[in-house]
Design a protein around this nucleic acid. Sequence first.
DNA 1: TTATATTTTTAGACAAGCCTAAAAAATTTA
DNA 2: TAAATTTTTTAGGCTTGTCTAAAAATATAA
Lengths: 216, 216
Amino acid sequence: MHTLAEENYLKAIYKLSLIAENVSTNQIAAELATKASSVTDMLRKLADKLLINYTRYQGVSLTQTGEKVAVNIIRRHRLWEYFLVEKLHFKWDEVHEMAEEMEHISSNELIDRLDEFMGFPTRDPHGDPIPDCNGNFKTNDLKAISAVDVNTCGIISGVRDHSSSFLQYLEKQGLTIGKKITIKEIITYDNTVVLQMNNKDLQISRDVANNLLIAL
Amino acid sequence: MHTLAEENYLKAIYKLSLIAENVSTNQIAAELATKASSVTDMLRKLADKLLINYTRYQGVSLTQTGEKVAVNIIRRHRLWEYFLVEKLHFKWDEVHEMAEEMEHISSNELIDRLDEFMGFPTRDPHGDPIPDCNGNFKTNDLKAISAVDVNTCGIISGVRDHSSSFLQYLEKQGLTIGKKITIKEIITYDNTVVLQMNNKDLQISRDVANNLLIAL
DNA sequence: TTATATTTTTAGACAAGCCTAAAAAATTTA
DNA sequence: TAAATTTTTTAGGCTTGTCTAAAAATATAA
């Protein structure tokens, strides 16, 4: 269907589109750890295939077709992550790279059967929504802990940083998906956040609070 | 670890090595549906990496390392085929192309866990042995139906042709792995073979008899 | 054993996807 | 608004893996 490189570009553009409508060449280059000139080459190719809207110097956005392809890649990625954690018992910080490879297996029939086999899960192990076979999924209505008021309580439901070091840290602190927490205090000196979980207090840095999402 | 192309060449060389010790450039080209000149290029590369023994004009054989890599690819292929049939309920004629992609997912940890998840199967859906995590597997001691004497009986245990048209034909005739059959007669005119299965007679062509394997 | 046919390799080219260096366009700053 | 800076594109090159056409080596046949 599409080459590996094309799929990775579409995924990157999709991800960056969530932050800002129009995506710049440099942003894509940074996301994919490649050079701006390489990005320009690929953008022309993707535009030729009608997967993106592209005018020189003006940045890009996905076409409807492009977005469909991107969402499908994300569906495949998240379903394989779910499989790896729920069926093969990998930890949530171990699955990203494997899923990065597996998401390029092309058969949709395979993915739909995998979905069925696992009971049509709606969230991956990091709390991100899994698109269904039509590409529909609930948009996450989550807030970073750093963005809520003191005394708010909520359920840990997602992360912004998917790096294994961050996920390992959360695991160690017991800050995993589903846990109920209350934001007790924000220390003005360095924005450290004091949480309560299972009747115990826990301090997390501003950085961690920025990357940990809760449902209110 | 190795590129997709390298893995496919190693697999092809391994497969051809089972028929004849030394494998020729043209044989590999035919197996991979490519040109002899392309094969020569790749052989030099594989030889540089010490994966094959290669002298110009003399054909090739796998080194120990090369064979290990090849067997590992076959292990991955067959485990994924097993997964697709046993867990996702695909038919045995539908899984080859998918497994062809999946066999290149690189993590060995993933494959070992998949193996465990499925209870360490020893045969794939076509009856081929699945190498264990050390690369060991039972060699198939099977015979083509065309190669056994009249009145022999045995269990259908493998196929030589993995094409979906052949597998679909077998399925339709009920000639699936595990079935007990007796070779009743070989019609001298065209070598048609008359089988008995479940007390019913069944005629198969010489071609089919050549590609259907039984354990005695 | 020489001629013919086949197989294999070499030479040179091409597409995909990447790179560096330089030019062009857009943006920011003064 | 002109100058400086940043961003993006172009130009040209590299690697991988493929191809065709031609040359070289090997195998077969007369």
